[in-house]
């Protein structure tokens, strides 16, 4: 999962005067040049290359013929891709909201001046450091009805207890969400905790004097103050959602059936395993378009448009 922090740039018209001179701005432009080249060659270049390949009949190696929109017709007729698209929205919604809620709660509770704070924090954060290839096996075992929780509870005498989501086509995607929450809420907790530590001390004093219950202060005063943190966390989690792959491969390999397939896995399988670069890049292009549609307005409002007033 990639990590990104985002907040609104501070708007300060007073800086305009200083930053006006073209001569002094030249070193800044030079400093940005390598990144600009990378954006141009690597990011834009690779995006265009991907889009171009989606209109070809490429299989194992890319070739630049013209295949029309055939790959897209195939893509939309492919029920695995359709399922993948549905799954990513289910997963995305539950994963992002779940991480925010759990992360926020953990942060609030950890912030109650508890003993062993460092220990708790490390426990909540450690899943982030581990490769999913094997932690996924541990989850797979625990969720498996014959090995894990269901067996444990039944062995304790509750013969009818059933927890078989991972082998159930309708429920399996939610087991991916559970493991995702395990992996992602620690980092969200850290970000939220950082936010809580930034809240003004006087605010707490004032609230205490006014006799407002602590939970009310958190929900009505602190939470709105944490807005930049929430945005940071959401973007960070969203990149993880779009790239979701390892987790699914380690836990279900897309199964039972195609119940837990996701778009990134569709792309990877077709690019590498199935030697179907044409279809794989068409799926990648669709993902790209979706991300652009969802994000472009936000990126524009936050980062591109403020140029005029900010600098």
């Amino acid at each position: 999962m990639d990590t990104i922090s985002i907040r609104a740039p501070s708007v300060s018209p007073s800086g305009t005067k200083i930053r006006r001179s073209l001569r002094t701005r030249l070193p800044a432009a030079i400093a940005l040049l390598p990144t600009a080249l990378i954006v141009l060659v690597v990011y834009i270049g690779c995006m265009l290359w991907t889009v171009r390949l989606s209109f070809t009949s490429s299989t194992l190696l890319p070739k630049l013929d013209w295949f029309g929109v055939t790959q897209y017709t195939r893509l939309f007729a492919n029920d695995r891709f359709v399922t993948s698209a549905e799954n990513i929205f289910i997963f995305g919604a539950l994963f992002i909201s779940g991480c925010l809620i759990i992360g926020f709660l953990l942060a609030v509770f950890i912030d109650q001046n508890v003993r062993g704070e460092g220990l708790f924090r490390t426990i909540f954060l450690y899943p982030f450091s581990m490769s999913f290839v094997v932690t996924g096996v541990a989850w797979q075992w625990f969720l498996n009805p014959a090995l894990g929780l269901q067996k444990l509870v039944r062995d304790m005498g509750f013969e009818t207890f059933t927890f078989d989501w991972i082998v159930n086509q309708r429920m399996a995607i939610y087991t991916i969400v559970i493991a995702g929450l395990w992996h992602g809420s620690g980092l969200t907790m850290a970000i939220m905790l950082a936010g809580l530590r930034g809240v003004d001390k006087d605010l707490w004093k004032a609230a205490k004097i006014d006799g407002i219950p602590t939970w009310r202060v958190y929900t009505s005063v602190v939470l709105p103050l944490l807005r930049p943190m929430v945005v940071t966390a959401v973007v960070l989690l969203a990149t993880g959602v779009v790239k979701l792959y390892d987790l699914v491969v380690a836990m279900t390999l897309g199964g039972p059936g195609i119940a837990t397939e996701v778009p990134a896995k569709f792309v990877m399988d077709h690019l590498f395993e199935r030697n179907n670069i044409g279809l794989g890049t068409a799926a990648a292009t669709m993902m790209l378009i979706t991300v652009v549609i969802v994000l472009a307005p936000w990126v524009y409002v936050r980062y591109v448009r403020p140029q005029g007033s900010h600098a």
């Binding site: 096996v137 797979q140 498996n144 009805p145 014959a146 090995l147 078989d164 991972i166 082998v167 399996a172 836990m251 279900t252 390999l253 199964g255 039972p256």
Partner: peptide
């Protein structure tokens, strides 16, 4: 096949 088969290595 036993019901716990899906996902098993």
């Amino acid at each position: 096949v036993d019901p716990a088969s899906p996902g098993r290595n």
